[in-house]
Simulated assay, not measured.
Amino acid sequence: MRILSAGTALPGPAIDTGALARRFGMDGIWEQWVDAFIGTRTRHLAIDLESGQPRQSLADLGETAARAALDRAGLSAQDVDVMVLGTATPDQLMPATVNVIADRLRIDDIPTFQLQSGCSGAVQTFDVAAALLRTGRYRTALVIGGDVIAKHYDVTADLGALPPGELVNYVLFGDGAGAAVLSTLDRPEAPALRAVVTRLSGLDRTPGQVLNWYGQADRSTAQVAPAHEDYKAIEEWVPLLAEQAVEDLLDELGWEREEVDYLLPPQLSVTMTRRITERLDFADAVEVSRVADTGNTGNALLFFQLEQLLADMAAPSRAVAVAVESSKWIRAGLALERGTGPGGDERSERDKRDGGELI
């Protein structure tokens, strides 16, 4: 089972922290705080900051990313046998955004699934798609991940009056979508998907992130913040869960840390990614990170990392990607391997030694 391609989409122009500070009337100290404790340089938002009006939906971004992934795979929408979308912020509760994207791509009469999850939803799309492809009934899956968190922004808010758990959302996140083509087609040059793990890890743990949806009755009876972060809990638990996800993968595959050539770490923020990477201790691995320029795009970020990895990944080499969902705490990860030889179809000596097989 191989990842043939990846594609991504970002809305609007890049917005730096200075532009955010000017829009919300925050002083230079706030900008310095963002640089020091978050580290994100730019992000892309699916709303117009001046008016608060939406510019692009998750379906818009997902469609663009999916078309890019299919084009790079040399496939058409009619080649897709299964579609899976992972998101925490669907455009509507119904119809499912995955089906809106399918309709735009002219895809019909196939299984489609939408997974409601935070950042681990991107990995969960691969887990579901791989399980379906493994049955032999399907050959090619289109997996998509993305989020549009800016829909929760109040552009009239006085950020200076917001508690930290709400304020952080204005600087931590960006909007975007990504897609990948996973297939059992004979493409030996494409990286093999060796393992996928997703584990719920939230027993007795308070949610670290909450996103609220409102009905008419909710709006009239309660004033509840649409989004809230317990960033201290996230700082405490995400590095630990990322380490556990790595151990899950390495134990399942029998790989050693020094045999991993590329690390795709969780992308909460630049600062958090640095802490997590240091803890994971892949001293010889090349880090593939995009969060500094895109912001935390939730379920899209893994696809931005995969897009870069597929362009740069040498043969032979191994890669490990990790994602953590901090609402009710899910640890997740996947492992890829690109073989050696002119077409990438010969397994490396260490792979022959390990006796690894494609999943």
Rank of each mutant, 00 (worst) to 15 (best):
Ala6Ile: 00
Ala6Gln: 00
Gly7Lys: 01
Ala9Phe: 05
Ile15Val: 15
Gly28Phe: 03
Trp30Glu: 14
Trp33Ala: 11
Val34Arg: 08
Asp35Thr: 12
Asp35Ser: 12
Ile38Tyr: 04
Ile38Met: 02
Arg41Asp: 13
Arg43Pro: 04
His44Glu: 01
Glu50Ile: 03
Ser51Lys: 13
Arg55Tyr: 03
Thr64Ala: 12
Thr64Gln: 09
Ala65Thr: 01
Ala73Asn: 02
Gly74Lys: 02
Asp79Arg: 10
Val84Arg: 03
Leu85Met: 14
Asn99Tyr: 05
Val100Gln: 13
Ile101Tyr: 00
Arg104Asn: 10
Asp108Met: 06
Gln116Asp: 09
Gly118Ile: 08
Cys119Gly: 09
Ala122Trp: 00
Thr125Phe: 00
Val128Ser: 11
Arg137Tyr: 09
Lys151His: 14
Thr156Ile: 01
Glu166Met: 12
Tyr170Gln: 11
Tyr170Pro: 02
Val171Pro: 12
Val171Ile: 11
Gly174Asn: 02
Ala179Phe: 01
Ala180Ile: 00
Val197Phe: 04
Val197Leu: 00
Thr198Phe: 04
Arg199Glu: 15
Trp213Asn: 11
Asp218Met: 11
Thr221Lys: 09
Ala222Arg: 12
Pro226Glu: 02
Ala227Ile: 14
Lys232Asn: 11
Trp237Phe: 14
Val238Phe: 06
Pro239Phe: 06
Pro239Asn: 05
Gln244Ala: 12
Ala245Phe: 03
Glu247Ile: 07
Glu247Arg: 13
Glu247Met: 10
Leu249His: 08
Gly254Ile: 05
Trp255Glu: 11
Leu263Tyr: 06
Leu268Asn: 13
Glu278Phe: 05
Glu278Leu: 08
Arg279Asn: 06
Asp281Glu: 14
Asp284Phe: 10
Asp284Thr: 15
Val288Asn: 06
Asp293Trp: 03
Gly295His: 01
Phe304His: 15
Gln305His: 09
Glu307Pro: 05
Ser317Asn: 04
Ala321Ile: 04
Ala323Ile: 08
Trp329Asn: 02
Gly341Leu: 14
Arg350Gln: 10
Lys352Asn: 12
Asp354Ser: 13
Glu357Gly: 07
